[in-house]
């Protein structure tokens, strides 16, 4: 069986690259971490990979706004390469800050004409908690229709905002927040439009999501694993495994 090749991008302030690499490897992929500057120097790297992942963190400090600087840099220097990965049958995955980067790079939107952005959470600050998200359609290659994923989120700017009067197309809303096993808090933790937690594109091969699947691959990462009834494999690992299966 072919082992998919994954590039996990690194940049100043990106800080989830190691656990993201570990999750891909656990799912059966071959994965290397590469600094964005090396990719910009040598964009042909993208032609040799099946998956590009932009992991979480605070690229360039999230200065100006989250993901803006890295997103604009990638749009300037790597737009063709990113679209190439997707159009060759590969996948692009952005997690948390990586999602913000993909939105700022213009790869993800609310629909064919409506843009989207990730604005400040309604609560006004950074929030780290576990949330349940649900995949409502079978458009995105990495997600299973009807499945619920219990995952940690950790962000300040994760509220999907769109222009007045626009809406997020049903097939683009890859994940929505849902009521699950978590104790408290609003079902929609950041005030996102339509409780959308993740976006995909027209091909279903690009996914951006605010919760962190790489942070729940093992049982002991679950917030109440000591209370029992938690399977060995975390919900997040299912997303990486599904991606690997799709590429084999």
């Amino acid at each position: 069986m072919r082992q998919p090749r994954v590039i996990v991008l690194r940049a100043a302030g990106i800080n989830c690259e190691q656990e993201t690499q570990a999750a891909w490897e656990l799912a059966g992929a071959r994965c290397m971490i590469v600094h964005v500057n090396r990719v910009i120097e040598n964009p042909s790297m993208l032609a040799e990979c099946d998956v590009l992942t932009v992991p979480g963190g605070f690229s360039y400090g999230d200065d100006i706004s989250a993901g803006r600087i890295l997103g604009r840099r990638m749009m300037l220097a790597l737009a063709d390469g990113l679209i190439g990965v997707r159009d060759r049958g590969g996948l692009v995955l952005g997690i948390c800050n990586g999602f913000q980067v993909l939105v700022q790079a213009g790869l993800l939107a609310a629909g064919d004409t409506a843009p989207a952005t990730l604005a400040f959470n309604t609560c006004g600050h950074y929030l780290c908690r576990w949330v349940t998200v649900e995949c409502a359609n079978d458009h995105c290659v990495l997600l299973e229709r009807g499945r619920r994923y219990f995952l940690p989120m950790a962000h300040a700017e994760g509220r999907i905002a769109i222009p007045e009067g626009a809406e997020v197309a049903a097939d683009r809303a890859a994940l929505r927040y849902a009521a699950g096993v978590e104790r408290v808090g609003d079902v929609n933790p950041n005030g996102s439009w339509g409780a959308v937690a993740g976006l995909t594109d027209a091909t279903g091969r690009v996914l951006g999501m605010m919760p962190h699947p790489e942070r729940f691959v093992r049982r002991t990462q679950h917030p109440f694993w000591t209370a029992g009834d938690v399977p060995e494999e975390g919900d997040g690992l299912a997303i990486f495994k599904r991606a690997v299966d799709a590429l084999r």
């Binding site: 800080n15 989830c16 190691q18 656990e19 570990a22 999750a23 979480g56 600050h125 950074y126 929030l127 780290c128 908690r129 940690p152 950790a154 096993v181 104790r183 408290v184 962190h212 790489e214 942070r215 691959v217 002991t220 990462q221 917030p223 109440f224 000591t226 209370a227």
Partner: peptide
């Protein structure tokens, strides 16, 4: 306070500041 800190980055948290179903 603790919910404003990223408790999960690096994927290594085994026991977090809040424990159990009831946190």
């Amino acid at each position: 306070i603790t919910r404003q800190y990223d408790q999960e980055v690096q994927g290594g948290s085994v026991i977090k500041p809040a424990v159990g179903r009831g946190e």
